[in-house]
Structure formats: structure tokens, C-alpha cells
Computed example of a mutant assay.
Amino acid sequence: MRTGKGSGEGSAELLIEGVAKRFGEVAALDHVSLSVAQGELLTILGPSGSGKTTLLKVVAGFETPDAGRVLVGGADITALLPARRDIGMVFQNYALFPHLSVKANVAFPLEMRNIARAEIDRRVGEALAMVELAGYEARLPKQLSGGQQQRVALARAIVFNPRLLLLDEPFGALDRKLRETMQLEVRRLQRRLGLTTIFITHDQEEALVLSDRIAVMNKGTIQQIATTTEIYERPANDFVADFVGESNILHGTVSAPGLVALPDGRKLMVDSEAAPGAKVGLLMRPERFSGGGLNEFSGEIVEAVYLGTSFKLRIACEGGPELLVRQPARGTLPAAGTKITVGIDPEAIHVF
């Protein structure tokens, strides 16, 4: 097993070209193309029914695409059986053999490859040490916690030095604190081994924590592929802006350079080179507002929630939109009905 940090030995680039898959009248995948660099962790993020798990199954070989192809390390694997693809997988339900010990579960893919017993013992020991389960070899899955079972599944997925690692919502059954711990452990392990990895989730926060890049999917298509920062700060369209993080989305028309007119007559100053007459979307993240700014909104608080480090306020603006605003939690939580003025500067508004 590779143990050199970021070595990527055996790991390979993934290329998906024009993959389509229909189930009756439903286009689960609509000619999807993307690439994952060697050693990169790409998260596919989307709501239920967006096509993300179908795409993962096509890569793994559990679904055959109607069109397109899948290449790993430059080799076309579209028609290969799953067992011949050298891909490690981790599922939400762990998929451990309940009657086998931890050691036997992790050893299983090596035994299927007819690896010598001494080498199996060495690799299993290494894999369990990496996921901090040394000493648990003799236990059965039912004797482990959910987090420990997921670690066993992860050890089994990496023990045979896969060319690609696929994780299908692996932490969905874990409580929040354990899920956050496992996210960091997977990221640390992925970087240490240099594994090319695809991670499937509907959890936007999880995607931001784990990823080198994120591919946002909806209705069988990829809406945007970008770094975590770009996805959050510069979403490509309404769907991405709304799905990733909390958002205030408005629409208007560029009336002059750096100025957007909203339907209610309000004009906002923006940092954009969009041409006059262009129809644009505006994204204002709740945490970007402050007590002042070049663009001011006055209104009444209709809802106030205390979140520990911040107040989340819903503000009905005078003659205009309703805004979601986050402020640092200082002093007393404002009451509903309180009049308030907030502002946002042009460079804090993303125009798309």
C-alpha cells in the first residue's frame, strides 16, 4: 500500500465524455462530461434526483451508459465489469459482511485478487492502522459503532491500491459531530495516499470542507464545475447560487455601467462590466451585509434567530425584497418588528 504523502502511485486521471443515461422518459444523465485530475478530490453535489449517484454507478460499472464513455488513466473502461476496474467504493450503508471479522472484511478484495497470505496480513494491518482501527481485527461489524464500521469500509476500499476511490454519501447515517470528524479523516487519508477521488453528497457544507473542486448537478446536467471558493463566491446561475449556501438572489437590468435597476425601481451599485440593457442576476450572501454600505436597505425584522456566533435576521424591506442577513451575535437578539437598516458594498454583490 502507498504510504508516501500525496504519492498518487497507481492513482489515475478520470475522464467522463458525453455520458447519457435514461430510465424510461427520465434523462438521469444528459451527456455529462468532466475530468478529475490524478490525486484530486472532486465532489459531485446536488439534490436527490439530480443524477449524481447514477453518474457514480456508471463510473463504477453498475450502470451501462446509453452514450458516451469513461476513461481511467487513458484506458476506456466503459465496457469493463466492475470487478475488473480497480475502483474502491464506500457506501452510506457500509456494505460490510456481518459474519466476517474486521480483518476478514478488509482482506476480502485482496483474497479475490489471489494475493499471498503474508502480503494480505501486511496490507490489512497497514490499512487498519491508517483508519485508526489497529487492535479491532477480531471484532464483528455488529460490535462496532457506526463511525468504526465506516472506517472498516474505508480501509477495505483502499487496501488493494485502487486507481480510483468512489464515496457515495458515506456519512449520511452518522450524527453531525462524527460526520465532521470523518470528513477530516477522509480528506487527510486521501491527501496522504494521493488518491483520485469522487465524493457524492447533497450536503453543501460537506462539499466545501472536503473538495479540491465541486461539480454541481441538477436534472442530469452539470451546472458548474469550479473550486470551492468560486462555487460559493461566483456561482454561475440561480440554481448554484441558491443551492450552495444561504443566499439573497435578485434580478434586474443593467441601466448604466456598474448600476443595476431592480423591478421595484431601486438601483444598486455593483462591481461589474455587464453592458447596459443586460438582464442579470445578483447574489448577496447574508454575511456580506453590515450596518452600512453604498447600497442601503431599510425595513423591519420579521424573524430573528440566535445561532451562537451570529444572529440570522429576516428583513422585510420597505417597498422592496425580503432579505436574509447574518450579523455577529453581540448584545441582545433583536425583536421582531424592530426597524433596521443594513448595507452592502458593490464588490460584495456577485453579478451573473
Rank of each mutant, 00 (worst) to 15 (best):
M1P: 14
T3S: 13
T3I: 15
G4R: 07
S7V: 13
E13A: 13
I16L: 14
V19K: 01
R22A: 10
V26L: 15
V26K: 15
L29W: 07
D30V: 03
L34C: 13
L34Y: 08
L34T: 08
S35F: 06
A37W: 04
L41Y: 08
L42C: 02
I44K: 09
G46M: 07
G46F: 04
G51R: 15
K52I: 01
A60L: 02
V70C: 01
V72R: 04
L80Y: 06
L81C: 11
G88W: 04
G88I: 02
F91N: 03
A95N: 00
A95E: 04
F97A: 11
P98I: 09
H99N: 11
L100V: 11
A107H: 02
F108Y: 14
P109F: 01
R113T: 14
R122N: 14
R122P: 09
G125V: 05
L128I: 06
M130N: 02
V131S: 06
A134V: 11
G135T: 03
R139Y: 01
S145W: 14
G146A: 00
Q150C: 07
A155I: 12
A157M: 10
I158P: 00
V159H: 06
V159D: 00
N161S: 09
R163V: 04
L164C: 08
D168Y: 14
G172D: 01
L174G: 09
L178Y: 04
R179N: 13
E180S: 14
M182A: 07
M182N: 04
V186L: 13
R188V: 05
Q190C: 04
R192N: 15
L193Q: 00
G194I: 00
T196M: 05
D203N: 11
R213E: 06
I225H: 08
I225L: 14
E230Q: 14
V240F: 03
F243T: 06
V244T: 08
V244N: 03
G245C: 01
E246K: 07
H251K: 14
V254N: 03
L259V: 15
V260H: 07
V260K: 10
A261P: 05
A261L: 09
P263S: 12
P263H: 12
K267W: 04
M269R: 13
E273V: 06
A274W: 00
A275Q: 15
G277E: 05
G281R: 01
G281C: 05
R288A: 15
F289N: 01
F289A: 01
G291W: 03
G293H: 02
N295M: 07
S298G: 15
G299M: 02
A304N: 05
Y306S: 12
L307V: 08
E318P: 13
E318K: 13
A329Y: 00
G331P: 12
A335S: 12
T338Q: 09
G343D: 00
G343N: 06
G343F: 09
D345Q: 08
V351E: 01
